[in-house]
């Protein structure tokens, strides 16, 4: 569940022209790059950073929804939500594995998240305060993520593309799960409808920010596009998302919290109001309402359970030593 123009990518690379041209020719021929293939240092660095940010987003993304598992209103919703949040954990795991093929360990990647050095999708720094937020997160946040992740299935780096294929297959139920919650609310009491509208009001703009800065302000986008790590620009994906989502909101009978949102016949898509980029950067830089809580929760889960991981490793070492001793007799 992720979609954000990569933050702070640096695709700078220092290989000679001939090497870069040969690499680009492979990319242009749609040949996949596998972990042991020669690749520019900038390509490797950009990928590690992007895959890690993606993985961290899945893991941190478990928190706002996980927060509602014990309070889900029915057993069916509880089971679906637990299964969905579990999937996010699985997706984080697949993605960490893909990053590891480039030579960084899981421990190192997790360490970067916990130290605050690594970024994750800013959307998860907003709070899930009502049950309608669970519907809205599934509908909008997973919807935005799918927009981004489907083209990533064709990413030039093999392990990332393969992980994304698995993720997309599994995520197909996530957005439907969220939209179904919204449908139920919108067909329900006035109180439920108001709850749904309130959640849309709070999540709409942050979900548009998930696609990252405008293309004109997105510094390293061109190189990622050329290397086919990225297949569409931030603005292209954002536009697709808006065009797909507005009719879904109309079907629910909800109002988009954007007075400037209107159909543009000429471009065949919706025009929308200006996104508050100050807010975006504030949240990315750590000042969202939940940034501190999210990091605290992740660190606590890690630190409180260090003894568990140490115990398992110690046991494995002891058992291996015992086996060696027996074999030596």
């Amino acid at each position: 569940m992720y979609s954000q123009g990569l933050i702070g990518a640096d695709g700078t690379t220092h290989e000679d022209e001939e090497f870069l041209a040969a690499f680009q020719a492979r990319i242009d021929a749609e040949l996949k790059i596998e972990p042991n293939d020669p690749m520019p240092a900038g390509y490797r660095k950009t990928l590690v950073r992007q895959i890690a940010q993606h993985a961290h987003s899945e893991i941190v993304g478990m928190l706002p929804e996980g927060n509602w598992i014990t309070r889900a209103p029915t057993l069916r919703r509880k089971a679906a939500l637990l299964a969905k949040v579990q999937d996010e954990g699985g997706h984080g795991l697949y993605l960490y594995s893909a990053a590891e093929t480039l030579g960084v360990s899981r421990e190192e990647l997790v360490g970067q998240l916990l130290s605050g050095k690594a970024k994750y999708s800013s959307i998860f720094n907003y709070p899930a305060i009502t049950w309608a937020d669970i519907g809205t997160i599934g509908w909008l946040v997973d919807g935005a993520a799918i927009m981004n992740q489907i083209p990533l299935c064709r990413c030039s780096f093999g392990p990332y593309a393969r992980a994304m294929i698995r993720v997309c297959k599994e995520e197909s139920f996530h957005q439907r799960q969220g939209y179904e919650i919204m449908l139920t609310l919108c067909k329900g009491s006035d109180e439920q409808k108001a709850m749904a509208q309130d959640a849309l009001d709070r999540w709409w703009w942050p979900s548009l920010m998930m696609f990252g800065p405008h293309d004109a302000d997105s510094t390293h986008s061109d190189q990622s596009m050329a290397w086919k790590i990225k297949r569409f620009t931030n603005d292209e994906l954002r536009q697709k998302f808006i065009d797909a989502t507005v009719p879904q909101a109309e079907f629910l009978g909800l109002t988009m919290p954007d007075p400037d949102l209107k159909w543009n016949e000429e471009k065949g898509g919706y025009d929308h109001g200006e996104i508050d980029w100050d807010e975006f950067w504030r949240v990315v830089k750590g000042d969202g309402i939940c940034n501190r809580d999210r990091m605290k929760a992740r660190r606590k889960a890690h630190d409180d359970n260090t003894w568990v991981r140490e115990a398992a490793l110690a046991y494995a070492e002891k058992t291996a030593a015992r086996e060696t001793a027996v074999a030596a007799e």
Partner: peptide
């Protein structure tokens, strides 16, 4: 895919829990 585990038994269980859901 891959996963992390301290030994074969934990790896087998994790494989079941992660990849055969």
């Amino acid at each position: 895919g891959s996963l992390h585990a301290v030994d074969a038994e934990m790896a087998m269980q994790a494989a079941r829990d992660v990849y055969t859901r």
